[in-house]
Amino acid sequence: MEINILAFGIAKDIFGASKVTIQLSDAATIAELKASLEERYPKLKQLASYMVAVNNEYAESNLVITERDEVAIIPPVSGG
């Protein structure tokens, strides 16, 4: 399946775009998504940390994603 991923902050710089598409096997988990992204964008591993949000909620690594989900990469936040 194809997953569109929104990127913010430094993740946008690492991807070189505010949105990228990656291919994943059906019923892939957040952990698989992260592994696939880190292979394509090794600089992600240099971040202090990063989270994945699915449908505007922080997601656990065992969550299964579908093509209909809104997926976003959340690098360390620094608002306020």
Binding site: G9, I10, A53, I74, V77, S78, G79
Partner: peptide
Amino acid sequence: LKQTVPIWK
């Protein structure tokens, strides 16, 4: 807010 809200500077 500084810990959890997805805002970046």
